[in-house]
Design a protein around this nucleic acid. Structure first.
Lengths: 190, 190
DNA sequence: GTTAGCATGTAAGGAGTTACATGATTTT
DNA sequence: AAAATCATGTAACTCCTTACATGCTAAC
């Protein structure tokens, strides 16, 4: 109920927009596609699906109407297939088009990025630049931590912090390149 | 109360073993030193300190006995300084010496690594190798994800997954080198 | 025949954040 | 005079996992 955007809800809407799916399949898709959901459990997913139905953003469709049965479809357990409603699509697009500072955070950033194909270049740039500022702040903190640790005599802590700093630096460079690409309108080959 | 080792408790014990501290200072030290606790809040830290006191692993000491007053020490708010007990030190060493699979996970790995100076080479190697196996598994999943996404036409998802894969590959190489160093007994210059 | 995969769901609980409550001291 | 920093603590709430409950089908 918080004002904070629920990252999982956003991701479910995004994945379901590509094609309807039931919970079990949805989990596999999320796990495979967005790093954040590597370990997403059913105990999280099913209640989220219920919440999305309650808000009218998705609906149950027992079988994709008019679609050719994709598999043997022998009598498996009843599967509840979900589909995004018009209101759900609107909601998804609103969230994607007006990214607040929440979208610069680790998890939310990944989810927004995964659906960049559904946004315009201006929004993509806004998110990439916001993310870069976040990481630059983090890099500064990491640099100072390394500097302070260098004076102490703990080579393992130093090694851990050096590695952390390098990871942040690498990610900033990655963002630099993505931003350059967006600005050149060289839309990643798409 | 779970059987799972509480990572924060371990970190607090480790940092307090270096020198006693009060909550406010402790938080700064944890934030600066171990990446995982970048955002640790008082709402987490203070209850944890209470829990450690309740278990007899740390005790309150109102002022380090016999220590020279380090600062002006004008009448600030009462600070509760905590110190590790003998039982606490034992507990810390037991946890560090017998790392289970929990210690290969992201957060726990960082905390264990940060206190490598307090362990022996055999234990360090065990943790590094356990961690490497975890990451190799993750790398395999990431490779398959990239391969699958390559067939679809979503360059942003592909870019995100490629970046994730490269991060894991980089971390595996880092571990390779650390393991090589441990084996050569070239203990990081210490 | 038993293990793995398919499929959905709930209840209990862990681990953490945010917001609140309070107040002194130091710096600008 | 205001803002930042020092300092401790609680209550409510969120998000998520684990464990449980159930049962079918496919492969070994």
């Amino acid at each position: 109920m918080g004002r904070r955007v629920d990252v999982l809800q956003l991701a479910v809407l995004g994945v379901l927009l590509e094609s309807p799916a039931h919970g079990y399949e949805l989990r596999k898709r999320l796990n495979a596609r967005i790093g954040v959901f590597r370990t997403l459990s059913y105990g999280t997913l099913y209640p989220t699906l219920k919440a999305l139905v309650a808000r009218g953003w998705i609906t149950e469709v027992d079988r994709e109407p008019g679609e050719a049965p994709p598999a043997p479809l022998t009598g498996r357990r009843a599967r509840t297939v979900y589909q995004v409603t018009a209101a759900g699509k609107d909601h998804f697009e609103t969230l994607m088009a007006a990214p607040g500072p929440d979208a610069w955070e680790d998890d939310a950033f990944d989810v927004h990025f995964a659906f960049f194909a559904r946004t315009d270049a201006a929004t993509r740039l806004r998110i990439l630049e916001g993310r870069r500022v976040r990481l630059q702040e983090r890099r500064e903190v990491a640099r100072q931590a390394v500097a302070r640790t260098r004076e102490r005599r703990d080579s393992y802590t130093l090694e851990l912090q050096r590695h952390g700093l390098e990871s942040v630096e690498r990610e900033v460079r990655w963002l630099d390149e993505l931003i350059r690409n967006e600005r050149t309108n060289d839309t990643l080959g798409e």
